[in-house]
Design a binder for these strands. Structure first.
Lengths: 312, 312
DNA sequence: GCGATCTCTTTAAACGTTTCAACCCACCAC
DNA sequence: GTGGTGGGTTGAAACGTTTAAAGAGATCGC
């Protein structure tokens, strides 16, 4: 910038003015400056700008597992929406580990991100303490975190689960289990709890995964598809021996070879909304506590079928 | 930092010293400072630091399509490796569009990233001009860009394609087509060119996709799996009516329901190597021109079978 | 008692922007 | 001619660090 100023014979303040049009600058001067910028290939140093403005125009996305297409899709949409507003996106991977999550959040704080989005939260993470105390807006997707300082975007879990259970019981299932992602949990207790509630409403109890269920409701499509793989590798078949339901409706779920019955969530919409929510909060200069519930609906496909005879 | 200094009765320089251990500081002072840091919840402002050090400890990853698991996986590995060295990662989505790619690169330059990784390059992009002129190290994965200032990580495309064609011809195929990702191309001309070369070696020519091929080699697994879907929705079946080969071996490819014959690339290794290559270049203060070829091998599964009778 | 040495600490200048206040000059009203 | 107005420009401070250079006491050898 100093070089540009020198070359066009003006002060840096003037260069800054032609760049932002805050103060008026004579047409002729503007031209000279633009010329110099062009010749020197000048590109504004955003880090200096960030320092001065105390705003980095950067969002953090803290994602447990970038290989889960649902999470990836949300991150992607956030990036797109943010890009439109001139924001960049720092992604941080937690590997579902609360310790690295804390570590990553610290790093984001150090880099002074203007807002943070969690496409999912890891169990046992006291996530946003440090963020919230600093006034950094936080939006959480897929988990109904009840904190007056964080925004959330959720589907109506109990309605969705009600549809799932209704679908399964209509098919004659009564031994219904829940499968989570194995290692450390993501969507914490809400999804299995919703299942238990829906079952209870019908006088049923949850069946253990190892107690020979006839249907399994999985915490997400990746888990469901894995389950189908394990079942079929063991010589049984889906849906004949076991019905499987997923959550998310990731792209592969609708493939005819997979044909997974699942609860469809609109990741694109949810990601975009998350970005907009946090951007709005940033513009307004504080937290948000908005809670929106996104639409979701059961998509019945071929991975669910009638319960095995004699199992009602 | 000023607050910390004031609270512990020392100068900011001393605080800085206890933080980095550059200069010696008395044990007692160090203690007071650490205490103050703790009480105030101080966290170093990395943007000020970046400005002063003229290094942001940030990598850019320019990714055409985050929903392609191969790309996502590379990005993920880069993030992991970078995190270990205290680097953050800015992801930029190009949507396979050269214009937004240019835009994103400009944004990365403005933010003064220390290095950039392209998990794939979009056709027709004059990518790295601006980056290279500024001395920013660049590493490209999956495309053998021959530029003395960019590092590359590739598989041996012609060897891999040789294996594919050998496998297919052994099954009796001679009408072999290539399928790319439709819209704008990614891996530019190298993969189809390799196919043509391998065919030519056997006195065969490429068959058009619309000219009733008996086998199709796809530019990646996503395209292959899509193709299977389209074929089977139209009432034909894979591999009975058409053999399909992919590239990458993304996780779903090995699912028994998909069972895709494909060329396996080790995304984890390639991502890690890309990160290490660019980090090394940053440490050395300049470009890299290293070219490594990663291992790849054909994994034969159920999506390829004997050519239809009468088609030899 | 005096310079040298050593350990610890501070001062102040950078890094590259933005922006407030001041300045200059021309024009205008009176 | 004086004061106001307003467009165009600039000086300089600030943002929060790092670091070279200088300073301040001790300790020490002699």
């Amino acid at each position: 910038m100093h070089d540009v100023a020198r070359r066009s014979g003006v002060s840096v303040a003037t260069v800054s003015n032609v760049l932002h049009g805050k103060a008026p600058v004579a047409a002729q001067t503007r031209l000279r400056v633009l010329e110099a910028i062009d010749e020197l290939g000048y590109r504004r140093n955003e880090v200096a700008r960030s320092l001065r403005l105390r705003a980095t125009n950067t969002l953090g996305v803290v994602i447990p597992d970038a290989l889960n297409p649902f999470h990836a899709s949300i991150a992607l949409q956030v990036e797109r929406r943010a890009h439109r507003d001139g924001f960049a996106v720092l992604v941080a991977e937690t590997e579902n580990d609360p310790a690295t999550e804390a570590d990553q959040v610290r790093a984001l704080v150090g880099r002074r991100v203007d807002g943070v989005i969690f496409p999912a939260v890891t169990e046992g993470s006291a996530i946003p303490a440090e963020l919230l105390d600093r006034g950094i807006p936080v939006v959480v997707v897929s988990f109904d975190l009840r904190d007056s300082r964080v925004g959330t975007i959720n589907i109506d879990e109990s309605a969705a689960m009600e549809d799932v259970v209704s679908h399964l019981t209509l098919l004659g299932h009564s031994r219904i289990a829940f499968a989570s992602s194995g290692q450390r949990e993501e969507s914490i207790e809400t999804r299995p709890a919703a299942l238990r509630a829906a079952l209870a409403r019908r006088g049923l109890a949850e069946t253990g995964l190892d107690a020979d269920p006839t249907a399994v409701c999985c915490t997400n499509d990746v888990v469901a598809i894995d389950l189908i793989e394990r079942v079929e590798r063991s010589g049984r078949s889906v849906p004949h021996d076991l019905s499987v339901v997923g959550f998310d409706d990731i792209p592969i779920a609708s493939h005819p070879r997979i044909d997974l019955t699942t609860v469809r969530q609109d990741a694109e919409q949810m990601g975009r909304m998350a970005a907009e929510m946090v951007l709005a909060a940033i513009a307004a200069g504080g937290h948000t506590a908005e809670r929106v519930t996104a639409p979701a609906r059961l998509v019945v496909r071929g991975s669910t079928g009638p319960a095995r005879a004699g199992d009602a």
